[in-house]
């Protein structure tokens, strides 16, 4: 197990560097730059800018310098936001996205697992149909539709909740629900399917034959196997959660990393883009590693070399 973890950890850094390189190429290839405005700049001013930011060097020198700095975890300063270092910006804004994402996923797990389990147990009941229909909607309604709908009802009609920004717990309710919806839907359906499959298996029959209470059969015997699809879903879900936070952050004006990331691309703010890309790719790889490891804990049949 340890060897497995080490191997995976070792590959994270080269992968991140690869991702950074590819991103760098894409940024350079895309037309436009961080200083262009409606009017074309007088060439002298453009020269000044290039000199100030080291853009007048040949591309391989720029690449080399950049890589060298990155290996020392120095992503430099943002080109757009004067005097703010990339590390500082990421450190300041990531917590918002993290909190948002984590709360959303926990909520999704809570709702999804509950709905899925109950639906599986009371198959073809009203709850089953109702919750699976709601799940279907949760899957098909995009978060940029759901969010505004919630805002319409709770902020603009009832005036209960603030329509945007970040503040106390009241501000969190709608963004978290909006983000969680699609995952709750997936998890509900996955759990239900997983549980149904497990409940049909022989060892559940054995458990019942032993005279165990139905609740124990469910929680002790069925759950472990039933939620495995949910665990394997968590890996890719985390990646898409990151993308989901971008939309939610934009709609609710939350100062999270997703918002900043989109803005940095539109601004062609190269150091910031690279910093965020490196950070996110490492994050995803580590998250996937954790998911894989927990897989091993859940299912004793899986052993990593």
């Amino acid at each position: 197990m340890l060897k497995f973890i080490l191997k995976r950890l070792l590959i994270i850094v080269p992968m991140a560097l690869l991702v950074v390189t590819v991103t760098w190429v894409l940024i350079r290839v895309a037309p436009g730059n961080f200083y262009s405005t409606e009017r074309s700049l007088p060439p002298a001013i453009e020269e000044n800018i290039k000199k100030k930011y080291g853009l007048d060097q040949p591309w391989y020198i720029q690449y080399g310098t950049m890589m060298g700095n990155i290996l020392r975890l120095d992503f430099g300063d943002s080109l757009k936001y004067q005097g703010q270092s990339v590390n500082e910006i990421i450190a300041r804004h990531f917590p918002y996205s993290a909190i948002l994402g984590l709360l959303a996923y926990l909520l999704a797990l809570g709702i999804g697992l509950f709905a899925g389990i109950v639906a599986a147990l009371k198959q073809n009941s009203a709850f089953d149909y109702g919750s699976m229909a709601a799940a279907m909607l949760g899957l098909s309604v995009p978060n940029f539709v759901l969010g505004p709908l919630l805002v319409l009802l709770f902020s603009l009609y009832l005036y209960w909740l603030p329509p945007a920004r970040w503040g106390g717990p009241l501000y969190l309710i709608m963004p978290v629900v909006t983000l969680a919806a699609i995952y709750a839907a997936y998890i509900a359906r996955l759990t239900r399917a997983g549980m149904l499959e497990v409940m049909r298996s022989d060892y559940i029959r054995t458990a019942r034959a032993k005279g165990l209470k139905e609740s124990k059969v469910l929680l002790k015997h069925a759950l472990r196997g039933g939620i495995i699809p949910v665990v394997s879903f968590t890996g890719p879900a985390l990646a898409s959660l990151l993308a989901g936070t971008v939309v939610v952050e934009k709609v609710f004006a939350i100062p999270g990393l997703g918002n900043i990331f989109i803005q940095s691309v539109l601004n062609r703010d190269e150091p910031l883009i690279l910093g965020i890309v490196a950070f996110l790719s490492i994050l995803i790889m580590v998250a996937n590693l954790i998911v894989d490891i927990s897989y091993g804990f859940l299912d004793p049949r899986i052993r990593y070399e």
Binding site: V151, S155, L156, P162, A164, R165, K250, F252, A253
Partner: peptide, 9 residues
């Protein structure tokens, strides 16, 4: 839309 919502609220 977000700005308009905040204004209305």
């Amino acid at each position: 839309p977000t700005m308009m919502n905040i204004y209305k609220a």
